[in-house]
Amino acid sequence: SNGDASPTLTLAEHDHLAQIICKSHLETCQYLREELQEMSWQSFLQEEVEKYQNKPQEAMWQLCAVKITDAVQYVVEFAKRIDGFMDLCQNDQIVLLKAGSLEVIFVRMCRVFDSQNNTVYFDGKFASPDVFKSLGCDDLISSVFDFGQSICSLQLTEEEIALFSAFVLLSADRSWLREKLQVEKLQRKTESALQHILQKNHRDDGVLEKLRCKASALRALCGLHSEKLAAFRTVYPDAVRTLFPPLYKELFAA
């Protein structure tokens, strides 16, 4: 990288960047804080769990694909509001969203994850891993829940979630980027603002390193999702073609 890719921001600039990213995050969160507070954090009853478990595999995959697609649209809006994202060339905007939107969804999941009961908000109530049994990919589901537990244990504030999401989305090492340096510059600015906020919140020195580890865990998780989708598609090519949302196919099955 050159000097241009190592921005030095003043404290006020860090605060300003953090504020903008946090505002973008709050404006584009699927569930607002107030809504989350009103949620009764009610878990599915046993008969409801069984209803999901008895669904045909392709119907449960379709339901999850629809939920992921809904969440992706909010992530696209988040990306559009990040300072500098829309100044990137369109190829790079698409590359970053294709590679990073699901990762951001997994980061955002900590807002709707009940770590005490090991449940996550899904389809109106809180679901334990066994709700997803009919998907036929227990290892992916347990990895997602493990990730939920570990990110919840960091007890991130909304501002920290926002900056970490932007940091993940602006990963400059994604394949097929055309203007890598531009992305790198944005990511460094974001990382620097994240570091500033962590210090301001009196976080331990190790938190940033833990978040870097989470970023690689996210890649592994999304890699596993792609693997499972490919395997499912081999068995049910028509289900993917006819039942899955077009945006999901564009992002994950193209």
């Binding site: 404006e27 649209q73 809006e77 369109q90 698409i94 969203l97 945006l247 564009e250 193209a254």
Partner: peptide
């Protein structure tokens, strides 16, 4: 663009689903 036409459209849209 053709391969990612929905994503392309979402990026071009000035109205967000959140605002809608």
């Amino acid at each position: 663009k053709e391969k990612h036409k929905i994503l392309h459209r979402l990026l071009q849209n000035s109205t967000s689903p959140v605002e809608l």
